[in-house]
């Protein structure tokens, strides 16, 4: 169970109350994969932070089974600079699992993101894209019941992004964890989501069920058509061929 009930969140910016999230009610069924798409500052990251329990709602409610484990991939890699890649992946597991189990999970996760050769590298020695892959491996190694991802692939080159999108779908299909992925890329939203939640100015303005089998291809006419329709709604027909409707950084 993962649910927002009339959840709002205000921030105080220079003495002025700014409403980042405005009365959002949204259910994320167990075992589903949902993508959230919208413009810059539309409240996507705030929504994810509420789900993760990192921010409390100003009003309304977040419902989540306390027993469920959460993995989060942030916009930035957020690696511990004093730990090498493998130790960063092992970081959330330490003290909970046996050493052999941790080692096996770290190996598996680093293999999934294609970084077995970099396991001894320190974060300062990794490129931005590699660091982000380590961060993704860290979340995957936890095998969380709920996996929350905030623009996880935007720092990656197109090839790596495509392959990691496949890895994510694969893992979701195998483990049936509840996945919520926030993105500014409408194509990514359509490729990965069973449903796509559209956000604007802190509100959810639409939810589209994507009834297409996985794995999906960007060139599939059904994907292209859906992408165009969502884009048209979100940008108001401004430039339907520019998929970057929401910038990577939230103010």
């Amino acid at each position: 169970m993962l649910e927002l009930i009339d959840a709002s969140r205000q921030y105080d910016v220079a003495g002025r109350a700014v409403r980042a999230l405005d009365g959002v009610s949204e259910r994320f069924p167990a075992g589903s994969i949902t993508t959230v798409v919208g413009r810059s500052g539309c409240g996507k990251t705030t929504l994810l932070r509420l789900l993760a329990g990192l921010t409390d709602p100003s009003s309304g409610e977040v419902r989540r089974d306390a027993a469920r484990s959460i993995g989060v991939v942030f916009q930035e890699a957020r690696l511990m600079p004093w730990l090498d890649a493998a130790a960063n992946v092992a970081f959330p597991l330490k003290g909970r699992l046996g050493r052999a189990e941790i080692a096996a999970r770290v190996d598996e996760a680093l293999t999934l993101v294609g970084l077995t050769d970099a396991r001894r590298a320190l974060p300062a020695q990794l490129s931005g894209g590699m660091a982000q892959r380590v961060a993704i491996a860290r979340a995957l190694a936890q095998r969380p019941d709920i996996l929350l991802l905030d623009e996880p692939f935007s720092a990656l080159d197109a090839f790596t992004r495509r392959s990691l999108q496949r890895v994510l779908v694969d893992i979701w299909r195998r483990r049936r964890s509840t996945v919520v992925l926030v993105t500014h890329d409408v194509e990514e939203a359509v490729l990965l989501g069973e449903s796509v939640v559209e956000m604007e100015a802190g509100r959810v303005v639409g939810r589209v069920a994507v009834d297409l089998p996985f794995p999906r291809e960007a060139t599939d006419p059904a994907v292209v058509d859906l992408r165009r329709r969502i884009l048209a709604r979100l940008v108001g027909g401004a430039d339907p061929f520019n998929p970057q409707v929401c910038s990577r950084r939230k103010p």
């Binding site: 959460i70 993995g71 989060v72 957020r78």
Partner: peptide, 17 residues
């Protein structure tokens, strides 16, 4: 970096950890 502390909070670390 408060962002690193959030990584710990998400991982369910105690205050002491």
């Amino acid at each position: 970096d408060p962002k690193l502390i959030e990584v710990g909070r998400v991982a369910g670390l105690t205050r002491r950890d």
